[in-house]
Amino acid sequence: MKQEPLKIPQATTKRLPLYYRFIQNFSNAGKKRVSSQELSEAMKIDSATIRRDFSHFGALGKKGYGYDVQHLLAFFRQTLDQDEETNVALIGVGSLGTAFLKYNFHKNHNTRIVVAFDTSATEDGMMLSDIPVFEPSKLEEKIQEYGIELVILTVPSRAAQEVTDRLMTTSVKGILNFTPVRLTVPDSIRVHTIDLSVELQTLIYFIKQDEETFTHNS
């Protein structure tokens, strides 16, 4: 009988890469075991939240002992498919896109940008930060050629849905959307939107709330 996949809360899922990163740090520092309190202090996440997150995956630690660092490292590597590299395409090489190309992700993660698209590209393509950049007209062709399933979208807002419509005809399964546009996609494609202006406004709101709370309690 096929085992049902674990139903993990979305908030927990978003923290998994962070756990993996900090556990790597503990491993690199030579730590053999770590407590939820030590993770809490390093990550600035409540220890009860960490224990609750870990509980979704069964017994990852032992009471009075904590967590074995190498066991956690192997667990999260497998859970996050860190041993399998994922090729990513970048669409839109403006200021933000250029920053992505210069950073690239494979230095610290299992993902790497292998191809990019921009209207500024020459007919035969060009190289930026050792990444080939092609005209948008070659989008479908190159996505197939490079076996792309994940895309970072940093195009102007007016072009976002049009580009997404073209991606629907390809093998792409996920879009990391850095435009403010709420993209319309089929259920077969997952979209994560990061709207920087909304994030900034949210941060400003919380800062003001903190200031009001501090003033009220003073």
Rank of each mutant, 00 (worst) to 15 (best):
P136G: 03
K138T: 10
L150C: 03
L153C: 12
I143V: 14
E135H: 04
L150Q: 14
P156C: 08
P156W: 09
T154A: 09
G147H: 04
G147A: 09
P156T: 05
A159R: 10
E135Q: 15
R158F: 13
E135F: 00
S137Y: 01
V155A: 07
Q144S: 11
E149D: 11
S157V: 05
E135I: 05
K138P: 00
E162Q: 13
V155M: 01
E145H: 10
Q144I: 08
E135Y: 08
V151N: 07
Q144Y: 08
E145L: 06
E145W: 06
I152L: 10
E162W: 03
Y146P: 06
R158Y: 02
V151A: 02
P136D: 06
S157Q: 14
D165V: 05
V151R: 13
R166G: 13
R166Q: 15
K138R: 15
V155K: 09
I152F: 13
S137K: 10
R166L: 09
V151F: 13
E141F: 01
E162N: 11
V163L: 02
E140N: 15
S137D: 13
S137F: 06
T154R: 04
E149I: 07
L139N: 08
V163K: 03
I143L: 15
I152Y: 07
E135P: 01
D165G: 05
A160V: 13
K138W: 11
I148G: 01
D165P: 05
S157F: 03
E145Q: 12
L150R: 14
R158Q: 14
V155Y: 07
I148N: 04
I148R: 05
S157R: 08
P136S: 08
R166W: 00
R158T: 10
K138A: 11
R158A: 12
I148Y: 11
